[in-house]
Amino acid sequence: MDTTSLAARLAQAAMAIVLAIVSVLLMLTTHRLSLDVLGAAIPVGLLFGALFQGVVCVFLWAATGARLPLLVLGCLWPVLAIPFLGEGVGGGVLLPAVIAGQVQLSGWIVQAIGVGVPFLVAALATVADRRRSRAR
């Protein structure tokens, strides 16, 4: 499979852009969901977000065989999340820093997941490629 031609790179970037938009919208709207089990609050929104981002990254890697879409996803994620971060119209609603005097860490965690998972998968793919090339 050709992963280095201009057309292949543009297709990889387009896939990453579409999936980044879906990922941001999905993760930012579900990250505060929790489920009470035996008196303990389980952050199912964050767990779902981490699982979703992991599946998206594995899909991009498997579909393209390249690290470019993973890097595009990791770099584009915070850019797409910016409108939801600040104060004002649309901002501070989905990712408020404080609610009723209590610091909201889930907003920071979902951002770390959105950015960190693609770079982690890209790093793991790089290590796997190097091990394969050394074994040859």
Rank of each mutant, 00 (worst) to 15 (best):
V115L: 12
C57G: 05
I82E: 14
L38Q: 08
P43V: 01
V98C: 07
L70P: 02
I99N: 13
M15F: 01
E87A: 15
S34D: 11
D2G: 06
F84S: 08
R134A: 15
V56G: 06
Q111E: 15
G91Y: 01
S23Q: 09
L35D: 05
W61N: 12
G54L: 15
L76M: 05
L73E: 00
L71D: 03
A122F: 06
T29W: 11
P96Y: 00
F59S: 14
G101T: 00
L95K: 05
L105N: 06
L94R: 07
L47Q: 03
A81K: 02
I82Q: 10
T30D: 06
V37T: 08
R134E: 12
S5F: 06
V37D: 05
C75K: 08
A100V: 10
L26C: 14
Q53N: 09
L6K: 11
L47S: 03
L80I: 03
S133L: 15
L25E: 13
V115G: 08
V117H: 03
L26K: 07
A62T: 02
R134M: 15
F52W: 14
A13M: 09
A7G: 12
A40H: 14
V24E: 00
R9Q: 11
L46H: 04
R132D: 12
P118I: 03
L73Q: 08
F84L: 14
T4M: 08
S106V: 08
A100Q: 14
P118K: 02
L120A: 14
W61S: 11
L51W: 13
G86L: 10
A8N: 04
G54Q: 06
D36A: 15
G114S: 07
G90A: 07
G86V: 09
I109M: 13
G91V: 06
F59Y: 15
R131P: 05
A122C: 12
L19N: 01
T29Q: 12
L19Q: 03
G45H: 02
V79W: 00
G92E: 00
A66E: 02
L85V: 12
L47E: 03
A7Q: 12
L19D: 00
V89A: 15
I109H: 11
T29S: 13
A41T: 05
V44G: 04
A97V: 15
G114H: 03
V56P: 07
R67L: 10
I109L: 15
T4P: 05
G92N: 03
W77M: 15
R9M: 14
T126I: 03
G114Q: 00
M15Q: 10
A13F: 04
V103I: 13
A20F: 06
T126E: 13
V37A: 15
S133F: 10
L124C: 13
L105A: 13
A62W: 05
V55I: 15
R9A: 13
S23W: 03
T30N: 13
A81I: 07
F52T: 09
V110E: 02
V58H: 10
A123R: 06
A50S: 07
A112N: 10
R132P: 09
A122W: 02
G65N: 02
A81S: 12
I82F: 11
R9W: 02
V98Y: 08
T64M: 05
R67N: 10
L105R: 04
